[in-house]
Computed example of a mutant assay.
Amino acid sequence: MSRPSVLIVGAGALGLVAAYTLQEYGKCDVCLVVKFGADLVRKDGYTFKSAQFGSFEHWKPKYILESVAETTHQYDYIIVSVKNLPDGPEPVNDIVRPVVKRCPQSALILFENGIDIEKPLIREFPGHAIFSGVSLINCTNIDRVVNQKNKDSIQLGIFENPTLKDNAVAQKQLAEFIKLYHIEGMNTVTLDENVRFSRWKKLVYNASINTTTALAQLDVTRATICGFKEGLCRPIIDEIYAIAKADGYIIPPEIEDHMLNLSNGLFYKPSMCVDAELGRMMEIETIVGNPLREAKKYGVPAPRLETVYHLLKMLQYRIMEKEGLITTDEENGVAHKKF
Rank of each mutant, 00 (worst) to 15 (best):
F267H: 14
K62R: 14
E277R: 07
K35N: 13
N261T: 12
G265Q: 03
A207Y: 00
A38H: 00
A38T: 02
A129N: 08
E57I: 05
P291H: 10
I117S: 07
L110S: 01
D87R: 06
A107W: 08
I209Q: 11
K338G: 04
P252R: 00
N194K: 01
V34L: 08
I78E: 07
D44A: 05
A276R: 06
Y181W: 11
N264G: 11
E160P: 07
Q316T: 02
A223M: 14
D76Q: 05
K313V: 14
C226W: 15
N206E: 07
T224A: 06
F339Y: 15
L7D: 03
L16G: 01
I154D: 07
C103F: 08
D143Y: 07
G10Q: 02
I284S: 05
C31Y: 10
P162K: 02
E112F: 00
A19Y: 11
N187Q: 07
V34F: 06
G299C: 04
L191I: 07
K172P: 10
P303F: 00
S2D: 14
L312S: 02
R280F: 11
K49C: 11
V308L: 09
C226L: 15
T21G: 02
D39I: 04
T190F: 00
G157N: 03
V17C: 04
S263C: 15
Y309I: 04
S5I: 03
Q171N: 13
T47A: 06
V96R: 05
I8H: 00
A11N: 08
V80E: 05
S135A: 14
R199S: 02
